[in-house]
Structures are given as C-alpha cells and as structure tokens.
Design a protein around this nucleic acid. Sequence first.
DNA 1: AAAACCATTCAAAGCGATTTCAAATTTTGA
DNA 2: TCAAAATTTGAAATCGCTTTGAATGGTTTT
Lengths: 339, 339
Amino acid sequence: MRLKDLAEHLGLSQTTVSRALNGYPEVKEATRRRVAEAADQLGYRPNASALRLATGRSGAIGLVLRGADELGPHMSEFLSGLGARMASHDIDILVTTVASQQEELAAYRRLAASQKVDAMILHSPTLHDERAELLFELKTPFVLHGRTYIDKPVAWLDIDNTSALERATSHLLDLGHRRIALVNGIRGRTFAEHRELGYLAALSARGVAFDRALMSNSAFTDEVAFRIAQAMLELRPRPTAFLAGSMMTALGIFRAIRQAGMTLGIDVSMIAHDDVFPYLNADNMYPSMSTTRSSIRQAGMRIGDLVLQVLGGKPVDAVHELWPVELVLRESSGPAPLF
Amino acid sequence: MRLKDLAEHLGLSQTTVSRALNGYPEVKEATRRRVAEAADQLGYRPNASALRLATGRSGAIGLVLRGADELGPHMSEFLSGLGARMASHDIDILVTTVASQQEELAAYRRLAASQKVDAMILHSPTLHDERAELLFELKTPFVLHGRTYIDKPVAWLDIDNTSALERATSHLLDLGHRRIALVNGIRGRTFAEHRELGYLAALSARGVAFDRALMSNSAFTDEVAFRIAQAMLELRPRPTAFLAGSMMTALGIFRAIRQAGMTLGIDVSMIAHDDVFPYLNADNMYPSMSTTRSSIRQAGMRIGDLVLQVLGGKPVDAVHELWPVELVLRESSGPAPLF
DNA sequence: AAAACCATTCAAAGCGATTTCAAATTTTGA
DNA sequence: TCAAAATTTGAAATCGCTTTGAATGGTTTT
C-alpha cells in the first residue's frame, strides 16, 4: 500500500493525500478526515526509506556501544528510558556495537556519512573526548551523557558526581572513618575523575591525608571489584569503609568483606553509587545498602528530550543539565569500628 | 559527497561508478580501482535512505523490547553478541522499547508496514506466541530466540532447557535431596515450561512426588527471588535445594538463605542457570555457584547468522538449532543435610 | 459583471541511489 | 581486413515520498 495507491483509491492526488496526512493547513477538513479514515482503514504507513530520502531526516538516533564493556546493565536501563521517550516521537534507536577503539571512531564516521541517524548520543566521555571532537567536525548533532572539556559547544546532561562523592565521603568521616577506600571507574572517564575530585575535596576539608593505595580505577564488574577489595582489606591498617562506583562493584566488595570474615555495616562500611536497576534493589539487600542514587533511566528519558531540542534547532550551548544526586543512608554505613 | 559528485569528479557516469563500487563484473579492472580509490579518498558513502529506497532492503533488523521487563542483563549480552555479528555485514539493529502488551503488537505492525527492518528477532516466546503469528501474517521474516508451538514454519534457535533441568535435578537427587525447589521464569514462556518439564521428568524418574509449594513462576529479579525463597524456607520440611532460573534469581535466593542463618552448599544447595554475564561470574562467587550454563552472547551471534540465512532465502523450516546446556558443578551444590 | 482574492487541488520536480536497456568500444575469428 | 561477438560505458527509468509552483473553482469586493 503506497501513497500512490491510497491516492488513487481516494480519487485524489498524492500531493493532497500527503498533505492531509501530515497536517498541512491547506487541505479541506472534510478531505482530511476522509483521507485519514482511508489510511487507517487500509493500514497505510509511509515507506520509511522514501520518507527519509525525501525529507533528508532519517528519523533515527544512533548509539555506538563498546562491546561488553559498555553494554552492561547501565546501558540497558538508559536505553529503556531513552526508548520510552523516543517511541512517542516515532524515532528509532540505532544501536551499533564495536569491539575496539579503532572500530569505534570508524563507526561514528560511517553513521554520519551514510546519514543513517539524525543525531547521536555519547556515553561515559573522557575528560577530552575524541568522539565528541569527531562528531563536531562531522557536524553531526549529539548529546553527551556526562561531560567533556573540549573547546567546542556541546550539549550535555550529567549528574553531580563531585558533590555526590564529597557528601558520601564527608558522611563516612562524620562516622569516624579515616581509612576510606575509593573503588572508582576507569581512569580518564570524566565521571570517575569528578568523583575522585569530590572524594579528595572531602578528605582535605577535614585535613585527612589521602592514600593512593586506597584508590583504584577499573571497570565496574563484580569480579574486578572483588579482587581489588580483597587486596585492600589485607592492608594494615585496613580500610574501614568503601566507596563503590556501582552496584556491581558493591557486590564484589561485599563478597570480599564476607570472605574476610567481616560484617558489612559493622566491621566495614560501604556507600555505593546506585543507578537504580529494577532487578537489584539497594533497599532490599542484606544488609541494605547506603547509596548515592540517581536514576540512569530517568537520564535516558531526559536525554531523549534534549536530543529533540537540539534537532529542533536549540543552540547546543543552551542545552546543559546537571542533576543533583541523592544520598540515601541505610544499614551498610555505620560508625567506624574501634580497634 | 553524492554518487553524482563522485561520478563527475571521475568523469564517469553514475552507473559505472555504482557498478564499480558494488563489485559488478562488467566494469574494467582499472576503472574499478580508480573508482575505489577516489571513493576512499573523498570519503564517499552511499546515502543510506537512497540506497534502501532503491534496493528495497532496509539494511536493518528489528528488536522490540518490553520495557524494563526485558531490557535486563540478558538482553544486553544478547545484543552485544548479535551486534558483533551484524556489524561485519553492515546491518544495523533497530531497537524499539514498549511499555505494554498493547503497544508491543502495534510496534511490530509499525516496523513491518514502514519497512524499516528486513527481519526481526523475537525473544522469550510463549508456548503459543502471538507475535510470531502476527509476523507470519505480515510476511516479515523473523528468527525466534526460543521456541513456540504454532503451526507455521518458524526459524528458531533455542537451548535445551528440558534436558538441562532434568540433569540438574537428577544430580541433586543423587546427592540425596528430596525437597528441591524450582524458582522458575514467567509462566507461559516456553523456556520456563520446558524447564518445568525437565524438573518433573527427573523427579518422576526417581519416583519422587513433586510439591506445588516448591514451584514458583516469576520474573528473574533479585528481589522477587528473595521473597520467594524466604517464604519457601519457612516451609516444613523445608527445601534442601534450589534450582534458580537465572543468576539474578540466584542472588536473591542466596540472600534469603544467608538471612535465614544457613550456609549455601552445606545447609542448602543451589544450581542456577547461568547465561554467562561478564560482570557476574559464577565461578567467582562465594561459595562458587553450580550452574547450568549457556552463553546468551553466543546465541546472539549465532542468531545473527541465522537471520542472514533466512534473508538469503533459506527456507525457515530448515533453520532450527537446539543447543545443549553445560552442567557445571561447583561449591553451591553439596549433599543433602542429615536432619 | 469584472477584478481580486481565497481556499483547494494537482502535475511534476526533486531526494540519491540501483538497474534496465541501449550505445560505444574493444577483441575475436575467419 | 572486416563482421561478429564480447566487453565496457552511459542515459534514463525507477523506488515512494515531499514540496514547489501552477491551476482550478468559488467568494467577495468594487
């Protein structure tokens, strides 16, 4: 069922039918109704490729994911939020996965050159993100989930990681902790650097010296976190509290604590960052987990809006949002043990 | 940079350039090289929409995901496998998320009618899957991840859930367990039904009566599993072993066991199904988890192949794969306790 | 009643590729 | 050497939509 068929069926020209369906004002109300009805009846949908070719807009936004590294639970939540928002605007999400750094930039180039997407979303940027640089050069609109420091105008939405970690750290200091371990994300990623900044700021505000041995950077997986925590717990004096970068990390640290024969919330404290996964609830953990919390799904939805704004012509340097992060105290963070 | 520009630049016709780039035989080798070089040089990429319109193929395959329900860790692993395979064929993955059952079928209709995708992939089908029925009607090619029992030819890849559960259950019976709980997936989903079949078969082979109170059906989340396991552990006689439908489920059950003051692998045993998540390793859990294991990422890659086969014209009833499931015994499954 | 004006509708020209069919060129064979 | 065959190139149609510019018919104004 093509536009042409529909037009013939109605005894109208393609022009009029097209206008009627797209809400142009110069078509008689009665005609519009007739057309809409017939289209609905016959199940007409414009051919996406033709529509795209004619309008020059692809009706899709792109997401390039770095293999297993990035396609974890965070991304699925984000995607689900973003998708919810985009669906109502009939915009698709094109997902490309790449294995290497090499392939990654090539993928952006490919998507941009073939005009498969109208805009892109960038994730977990580094302090000086080359993907952002590239897209700027390619003149492909994009919105950053996170922040980067390049001297080009960039639209972004980020959470206030620095403040989150500063408050979490301060709280642990209030509880008497002095050896606080930071199990952070990959070095160079802006969010990890921001968190480190907050952590260090809180320590220095109290005159507590930081210890490099208590700071680690790695991917957010259960296993890696387990190893790191295990090693840290063998230090003397050992850390009495952990700041975990994600719930996966928290799980790994938790395991290390238990294996070392200690009890979370009593012998060792922990505050983890919670991106709010429906299938892993900090409140229902045992003991329940204190967290810095910010819904990554909400962020996904909002970024959908931002993308639409940018595509709608809003200047990118007017599109910035910094979200506060909640600090939720539960059982996993208790007073420092007395040795 | 359009084909036309490239052709003019080379002093050739669009026809020849197009042919040269697409590997048609009727173009002189020297010309082909010259064209390829220039295309590369000038960074020419065919406009995706135009190409799609001209060829009638969209170069994308579709995935409709049911909100948070389905966009969990399973899906991200699957997607990552699928993406890896499709990327090399320059095929994109179009992800649509929907909230309700209602929206879901509409989404399939929409994708099919607008010809946005050449094929689709269906997940976690029910015994009699209406999405499969619909796509068959719409004449949209698709591959099922799982199985369904409709009387239409359908391409599918599934793992042998029945055999997996039968072996896992038998093993627990060998260890002396008689009260074995099955924390299964959502009722009606084929994989859950298959697993139940295997479980029941193993019990009846030993003449052990099954107990409905020890069988539950629900989504695979940590929290739900926790509640279920907690309730089951209060039964008398209590279950001495659990069969967990996923690693998330296993985490919840584990928590319930611990909270009840018992030790996994000693007081209570567990065998969980492991879809192999890179960030949640059964071998590194404490105690390490016995599992029925099958990589969902591998399945994703292979389904990519199957989609290509179907698109290549292979008859769908020749595209069936049933994968065996490994049984990996570790510390979480021990002999039944003596009361 | 003619002029001017609206409100509707339509024919045809794109959009950027592929592909059919014909033309031009080169190679082959006698 | 020249016709026939094979190779290589090109002009134009096509895919299904949007959109420009023109045409149609009916009202209102003068």
